[in-house]
Design a protein around this nucleic acid. Structure first.
Lengths: 186, 186
DNA sequence: TGTACATCAGTGAACGCGCGTTCACTGATGTAC
DNA sequence: TGTACATCAGTGAACGCGCGTTCACTGATGTAC
């Protein structure tokens, strides 16, 4: 049956949100189209009224996540400062809630295997570097150094959360997070 | 038909090697049992003469990779020093040959989702931290600081290669690798 | 304003496919006598 | 040393399953007259 356009748009948004959450929790291949549609309260059929393919959804979900994640970054840094943001990012809570966390830690490996998603992922990484460059306390003067420092910080952040999430020893994970926090703070 | 025991052992080893390569290239879920057996020159049936399940192979392949990877680390550091090792690790070549590279950058996300593999992964991370602690040039005196520095370095290494592998802009990837190299060198 | 019809997001069965795993069977090698 | 038999890693067809995707159909909403 036919539905009012605002309802259709709301459903589209809801599919993106559920996909963003499930993809970050279990990876692109770990979530089926049917599961995403079920999470929005629909059957799997009308998925193709909203997206051309699962691949297209992956790309659009990543772009949507990027926008929302960067908005969160800007807001938190503006309200509480970069040190507070780093504490949130390098926290046990972030490690344990991949579905609501950083798309880079959750989907970097999947992205390397899914060409359709690499553009959105790359744009997100560039945005993250630009933001860190602007707000990170700077140890050296030159602009080029600031950019390199932002990249090093980003690599350490992503690596620390990725490792903490994979090891089955929470104490080790927490130690890695703490090492990254202190390393980036000074 | 029956085969001599040394031939069986050689096939077992070969399955582990092919699995180690393919898993690192495409992830645990991205490689089928049949594909691994085909790569060893056999049909998929006898797989279960060698391993109880695909899950058991994943765990054993990870443990095997860990042993071989750490032996490579020890050899390269002994012959050429830690700086040369970091140059190899943080190189375009490493980024482009996941199947022959670091198991942490290739399989961290998959490991978080596969309980059977987490033990072997965690042991590998601990081994990597211990090794880096021993050979990394130390900025501070205390033992605890050395361990934290090793963890920060490991996080930056893993994060840098993971990001460089996922972005579709090789120049950006190379820039991230260079930033990590220079950041860890000083 | 009331009626007839086009629209299109929904339903749910069906498709072909590749997966992990099982199993009846084969036949060269190793062992017992 | 020669023969009979047990062993077991191999073969390849088959299994049940879940996947992404398609499609004939439904029926409330929006539009034309």
């Amino acid at each position: 049956m036919r539905y009012p356009p605002e309802e259709t748009a709301a459903k589209h948004r809801r599919i993106l949100e559920e996909a963003g959450r499930l993809f970050r929790e279990r990876g692109f291949a770990g979530v089926s189209v049917g599961e995403i549609m079920k999470a929005t309260g629909l059957t799997h059929g009308p998925f193709y009224n909203h997206f051309a393919s699962k691949e297209a959804l992956m790309a659009e979900a990543l772009a949507d996540l990027s926008t929302r994640t960067h908005a969160d970054f800007d807001r938190i840094v503006a309200e509480q400062g970069i040190a507070a943001y780093l504490d949130l990012y390098l926290s046990r809570r972030h490690v344990d809630s991949a579905g609501a966390g950083c798309l880079m830690t959750a989907l970097a490996a999947d992205t390397a295997k899914e060409p359709a998603t690499r553009g959105a992922f790359t744009a997100h990484v560039k945005g993250a570097i630009d933001r860190l460059m602007r707000v990170l306390p700077r140890r050296r003067r030159a602009e080029a150094d600031a950019r390199a420092e932002a990249m090093l910080a980003l690599a350490a952040m992503v690596g620390a959360v990725t490792l903490a999430r994979a090891v089955d020893d929470p104490a080790l994970g927490d130690e890695i997070l703490a090492a990254a926090r202190h390393g980036l703070a000074d």
